[in-house]
Design a protein around this nucleic acid. Structure first.
Lengths: 200, 200
DNA sequence: GTCTATACAGCGATAGAC
DNA sequence: GTCTATCGCTGTATAGAC
């Protein structure tokens, strides 16, 4: 794999991952082929196998890179020093950024195809959601403590509800090609979590 | 197509649709083949083409049948004479029934693969969601009027939020293979909609 | 209505030259 | 690190017998 290192984002391997990631987010893991990547990157199918022995290896590397980026984005939100409500909005804006590219969340797409994926990819997908859930749980607990966020039941179940709502909104609203629909759904979700006790 | 008629649920065409529907809900439209159906139904691939000329025709018939069933299920909920909150719970239980079979909502799965589908299938998918939305909007408006359901913003946006949450919960929770996780998410969602003003 | 047989394109993957 | 060439398999779809 030459001079490329883990995290290299300029080499051929990274370009392959970029293209493959976009294809999966639009068409699904079972909806694209090495030929598609080959055409877009400008090298032959055989050369792809040099960088990633098989489609399963490519898929796993793709999820891991995606998850790393997501973790970094969550850390950036934490660093910005916003109140819990603002961090929730920041979290939702990560989804919006993906939808604006007319893509589905990578792991949301792979969750749909879950039962057809090789086991290492399956584990990486659930790890992604576990990490999201833990981060949200922490924010929700903090918000409940300072009174800025209200929700029934546990922070963990509410965290799962938020992930479900955002992933589902991407899933369902993407066909309509209008990001304002997604934004209105997110607004409804967040309003339900931050409203005062005497509202509606 | 012999004695089969639209709505025939015992003939070969219906058996094909049954098997194909299950395959799509588990593996996706791009994740199964005529060979898979052939093996499970017990006829050859060629015979499948007699009933459904191409995969696109099969897919369209599948969505239309699924949507008809869903419409009938919604009508049954309306007929039961429940209050708005109970109807929302009944709506959620339709999703739970599908998840218990370890399947994804057919149209949720197809929404993920949307950009790879033939146009007639795309239109049928969005029609399905439109119908869901209209039904929920009606229930929410009624609930707001009698005071049993509370939500910020419009009934339409909240309807979309509910669909997103349920579809997303199926999507994300199915890999974990534990329906109680899904049920807890639904409980969080519904509790947020039906809580009294002084709760949490 | 279902069969056998087959056409033909596409798939992931490999061998070996450069 | 990329190429050409090719393998074996699977995909959807069709022709024609029964």
């Amino acid at each position: 794999m030459g001079v490329g290192w883990a995290g290299d984002d300029t080499g051929t391997a990274a370009r392959i991952l970029d293209v493959a990631e976009g294809l999966v987010q639009v068409r699904g893991f079972n909806g694209f082929s090495y030929a598609d990547i080959s055409a877009e990157v400008g090298i032959t199918r055989a050369a792809l196998h040099y960088h990633f022995a098989g489609k399963a290896d490519l898929g796993l590397a793709m999820i891991n890179r995606y998850a790393s980026r997501f973790t970094a984005a969550l850390a950036a939100i934490d660093t910005a020093g916003m109140p819990p409500g603002g961090r929730l909005a920041g979290y939702a804006s990560l989804y919006l950024r993906v939808l604006r590219q007319q893509r589905m969340c990578l792991c949301g797409m792979l969750a749909a195809e879950y039962q057809t994926l090789p086991q290492p990819m399956q584990e990486a997908v659930t790890s992604f959601f576990d990490a999201n859930e833990s981060w949200l749980e922490k924010v929700l607990d903090e918000g409940r403590q300072d009174g800025s966020v209200r929700f029934p039941g546990t922070a963990r179940d509410t965290a799962r509800m938020i992930i479900a709502c955002l992933e589902g909104a991407m899933l369902v609203e993407r066909p309509y090609g209008d990001t304002t629909r997604f934004q209105a759904v997110v607004a409804s979700l967040l309003a339900g979590l931050t409203r005062r006790a005497d509202q509606d």
